[in-house]
Simulated scan of single mutants.
Amino acid sequence: MTHKSKVAIIGSGNIGTDLMFKIMRLSDTLEMSVLVGVDPESDGLKRAQRLGVATTADGIDGLVALPQFKDISVVFDATSAGAHAKHDAILRAHGKQIIDLTPAAIGPYTIPSVNGEANLDEPNVNMVTCGGQATIPIVAAINRVAPVIYGEIVASIASKSAGPGTRANIDEFTETTSQAIERVGGARRGKAIIVLNPAEPPLIMRDTVYCLTGEADPAAIEASILEMVATVQSYVPGYRLKQKVQFERVGDNAKLRIPEMDDEFSGLKVSVFLEVEGAAHYLPAYAGNLDIMTSAALRTAEAIVRRRQDRAAA
């Protein structure tokens, strides 16, 4: 049996708690060691204690003080962009590899289905945002067939699935996702919008991707998108197209104005509509935004550990 690597999660809110359950239920590579919070009454810490996981309500300092800390190889940060800078400095000083689930973007952007193998040796990898994890694979799928001139995404999530950390990071969400659309997705220009939908009952996460490209074969683009959807589904089973990919040709006689680029466009407009249903490991299935984020972080951590094990065995 392969030896499991011990991990810790900083952040006992929605994302951190969901990730804890995924590690414990799904991973044959990672062992859940410590859950870190700042509120001793948080639901996440109480659940961890009932499951026999070590906890601390003293934040990063409490984690470092625990005897388990020396054996931890990977630390997930599921707090906020503002807190992550301090966590990063402390964890690097102790030689811990960090997977950042905040929009802090200190480390390189990582989307498992697009560049999942590229950053495994980095001391800190950034998982972008839930909207980025859902939509950037589609931008990249289109871009590998026809260069994307402009990519715009709209992520709509249930208000109940957005905890304090998510709400505090709305500006960072849009900035980080927009940059990752360009750097990972390959778009010349990217734009991101997030909507917290207060509907009752809560709606499943929906994502819309609009890409403007030069002239290209729609069938080839659709095939690339379908291939990418299948790749994401390998680690996020609830990820799916909501309807067929839509194509619209924009002629030179009726060009689109792109204000963000101060330019006009003619060519092919590709519209993709996605739905992400969560696995309900912690919050209900409508919280697909949590599921895709924690699933991507889990997939990345497992790849990091497997690479280490392969090198040790070589």
Rank of each mutant, 00 (worst) to 15 (best):
P108D: 06
R257H: 14
P237Y: 09
T79N: 00
K4N: 10
V272K: 02
T29E: 12
V276N: 11
E248S: 09
P198Q: 01
K242M: 14
G59W: 00
I60R: 00
D310V: 11
G13P: 03
K269R: 15
M205R: 04
H3G: 11
A8Q: 02
A279E: 15
M205L: 14
A158V: 01
G163K: 00
G52V: 08
M127D: 09
E41K: 14
I194V: 15
M24V: 09
V114K: 08
G13T: 05
T79R: 01
M228K: 10
S5N: 13
E41W: 09
A155E: 14
A85N: 11
V276P: 06
D71L: 03
P237E: 09
E302C: 07
P67F: 03
T213W: 03
A158I: 07
V34S: 04
L290W: 02
T17N: 08
G190L: 02
V232K: 08
E41V: 12
D262H: 13
C211N: 11
T17M: 03
H87Y: 12
K96M: 06
T2G: 10
R183W: 10
A297S: 04
Q68M: 06
I60G: 05
A187K: 01
E41G: 07
P198F: 06
F76W: 06
T231H: 11
E227L: 06
Y239S: 01
R47C: 01
P137Q: 03
E172Q: 14
A301W: 08
D71Y: 05
E260P: 08
G11E: 00
D88R: 15
A254E: 14
V154H: 08
N197Q: 08
R189I: 10
V270D: 06
V74C: 02
H84L: 11
A78Q: 03
A105W: 04
S234R: 05
D263T: 15
L241K: 09
R308A: 14
P123H: 02
A65F: 00
S295H: 09
I90C: 02
Q243Y: 09
A158W: 03
I106A: 14
Q233P: 04
A134Q: 08
A168C: 00
A89D: 11
T29G: 01
L101H: 04
R306S: 10
E227W: 04
Y210A: 12
A314Y: 01
G116P: 00
L66Q: 02
F21I: 06
Q233F: 03
G52W: 10
Q49A: 15
T213Q: 05
A146V: 07
A279N: 13
L66C: 00
E172M: 12
I292H: 10
K244A: 15
A297V: 03
V75G: 02
L26F: 10
H94D: 00
P201D: 01
A65C: 07
A199G: 06
I10A: 13
S80Y: 03
G185D: 05
Q309K: 11
V232I: 07
G238L: 09
S27P: 04
S73F: 08
S80G: 09
V64P: 07
V36W: 06
D18M: 00
H3E: 15
T135Q: 12
F69L: 01
T56C: 06
M293A: 15
I15S: 13
L19H: 06
S42E: 01
E302K: 08
I136S: 07
E200N: 10
L35N: 00
E31M: 04
E175Y: 12
I157C: 12
S266T: 05
D217I: 02
K96Y: 04
V272W: 06
G95W: 02
I204L: 11
V184H: 08
K269Q: 13
Y150W: 11
